[in-house]
């Protein structure tokens, strides 16, 4: 498969099937953090890093432990049901462990990166977009290389969406919004509009 195939997976993950705006994943941190632009960039970068690391690891576990091993009844054609309890537990533990590892690694080797991303890392363990990325990877039966591109692309999609929303919310400080619409309610309406704008990308033929 050529470069175009990977480019199309990447474009799909970033724009057309944006993990936040089309699949509603990672909304909790999306709404909570998007009040400030620099914090949004921070958590966006952290999501990119963690998704790019965990998706391939979970792919290996899926391919060589969960799919073929003693539990061979987990046939990929059934995986869209996502009913296999071991899959959930294994994936979430890998994510929690990886988040912890990335945090320790950063603290040791890159103090400046740790200072900017560190506080967001614990939040990411329970960010649905990370687990969602792994579950979608299984559901769509990606190859390893496709998984890496998909994980990275989904992370970039999250980064793009959260920075876009944060910028709009920043501008809105100067607008006169009805008092009880302020905050989350307004952020939801804005996300709806952003999502509508992103839907325009679905016209792209890949």
């Amino acid at each position: 498969m050529g470069l175009e195939h990977y480019l199309s997976i990447f474009t799909k993950a970033v724009f057309i099937e944006n993990i936040v705006l089309a699949y509603f994943l990672g909304l909790c941190s999306f709404l909570a953090i998007s009040k400030k632009i620099d914090a949004s960039v921070g958590i966006g970068m952290a999501v990119v890093v963690v998704l790019t690391i965990t998706a391939p690891i979970n792919w290996y576990l899926w391919e060589f432990l969960l799919k073929d091993g003693a539990l061979s009844w987990i046939h990929p054609s059934l995986s869209e049901l996502n009913l296999d309890f071991l899959k959930l537990i294994v994936f979430i533990s890998v994510i929690a462990a990886m988040v912890q590892l990335v945090e320790i690694f950063m603290e040791k080797f890159s103090q400046s990166l740790y200072n900017s991303l560190g506080i967001f890392l614990p939040l990411i363990a329970v960010n649905c977009s990370i687990l969602g990325g792994s579950l979608f990877m299984v559901e769509r039966e990606y190859l390893l290389s496709e998984t890496i591109v998909y994980g990275f692309g989904s992370g970039v999609g999250f980064l793009l969406a959260i920075v876009a929303l944060a910028s709009v919310r920043y501008r809105l400080r100067y607008s006169n919004i009805p008092p009880r619409l302020r905050g989350v309610a307004m952020a939801m309406l804005l996300t709806g509009l952003l999502s509508m704008a992103f839907m325009a990308f679905s016209g792209i033929d890949l």
């Binding site: 619409l181 939801m188 309406l189 996300t191 709806g192 509009l193």
Partner: peptide
């Protein structure tokens, strides 16, 4: 039925409840 509708309806519900 599409995703923007979900965001907008939930935004309105939250607004209504806060009112």
């Amino acid at each position: 039925v599409l995703s923007p509708g979900a965001f907008i309806i939930l935004g309105l519900v939250i607004w209504f409840q806060r009112e």
